[in-house]
């Protein structure tokens, strides 16, 4: 199911938590929602799930406004703080959620079994939720969000509290789910977005500041290509001078002259890999390394949200 958010606005008092944002998410797409604390991620997600009322604008799911038609049955939601009934055993809790989400009675057991297996809850399934560690509670939260096999998954920081192995498992799970479903997830962990999401949306102070894949964001953030090269030559000084004279290269920084390592910044809109290679060939030097330098997502994030 496609989700379309149109000029959504929500304020708390005088402060606008979400300020006129619009975006679309298509079926089979995993959208990563990034932003500093208090940027409006959770508020937006809460409005999509129908928990918070829409103040201005609209949210269209599957061609219909959620203000007119209740879409909760099609949405699986993992809230930020993952609230659970601590006095309930895992299996009972999942059954409770399944029934509330209108899973037919004869399917409830098989759905629970599937979720228990999928989220790795087998050993803990008869324990009370209050007795579980944070990571296992998070799994229960994920299980309850997916119990009714929803078309749309809204996950507010799904991997908090998980250990590295679990994080990998959950990411795989989300990626797998994302093939057929519409997934929106928010996170603070930047490598996670790159690992799981097809598209990234960065919001700051309630406004969208970037929208695109990790690659397009990188290009936007930095126009020039950066390379690190290592050239073996009798005279590194000659290499340095020759590099500077290449037309496609903007600046050359010496990292280590003795080993022949340089950092090269190309001119905007141009690529210098070929020129460097050809230069080495024609001079009879050996090109030992050429490493493209990628701007880290962290840097893009900082650049867009620090002001």
């Amino acid at each position: 199911m496609d989700i379309s958010i149109n000029q959504l606005t929500k304020s708390y008092g005088f402060q606008k938590a979400v300020d006129d944002i619009s975006f679309q998410v298509k079926t089979g797409e995993i959208l990563g929602f990034l932003g500093p604390n208090g940027a409006g991620k959770t508020t937006t997600m809460k409005m999509i799930t129908g928990y918070l009322d829409i103040e201005e604008g609209d949210i269209i799911i599957d061609g219909q406004s959620i203000q007119k038609r209740d879409m909760k049955e099609n949405i699986g939601y993992l809230p930020e703080h993952n609230p659970l009934y601590h006095d309930m055993p895992v299996v009972n809790y999942l059954a409770f959620c399944a029934k509330l989400q209108k899973v037919p009675n004869h399917l409830v057991d098989s759905r629970i079994k599937k979720m228990v297996q999928l989220c790795g809850l087998d050993v803990e399934k008869h324990k009370k939720i209050g007795e579980l560690s944070k990571g296992y509670r998070q799994r229960v939260g994920l299980a309850q969000a997916m119990i009714h096999d929803p078309e749309i998954l809204i996950l507010d920081e799904p991997t908090t509290g998980l250990d590295p192995n679990q994080i990998v498992e959950i990411r795989d799970l989300i990626r797998q789910m994302g093939k057929e479903k519409t997934v929106i997830l928010s996170t603070h962990i930047l490598p996670e977005v790159e690992a799981t999401c097809d598209r990234i949306l960065i919001i700051n102070n309630g406004k969208i500041v970037a929208d695109g894949t990790a690659d397009t964001l990188r290009k936007q953030a930095q126009g020039q290509q950066v390379l690190q090269v290592k050239v073996e030559a009798p005279s590194p000084q000659a290499v340095y001078e020759k590099l500077q004279s290449l037309p496609s290269i903007n600046t050359v920084d010496i990292i280590n002259l003795d080993t022949g390592r340089f950092e090269i910044q190309s001119r905007p809109e141009s690529v210098s890999n070929q020129h460097i290679f050809q230069m080495c060939v024609s001079e009879g030097w050996v090109l030992m390394e050429m490493i493209p330098f990628e701007t880290k997502l962290e840097d893009i994030f900082r650049e867009l949200t620090m002001n």
Binding site: T49, G50, Y51, E73, P79, P83, L84, Y85, L100, Q101
Partner: peptide
């Protein structure tokens, strides 16, 4: 207090 109201109200009940 525990926030479970958010979980409940995002299920398909009114």
């Amino acid at each position: 207090k525990t926030g479970t109201i958010e979980m409940l109200l995002t299920k398909s009940i009114n």
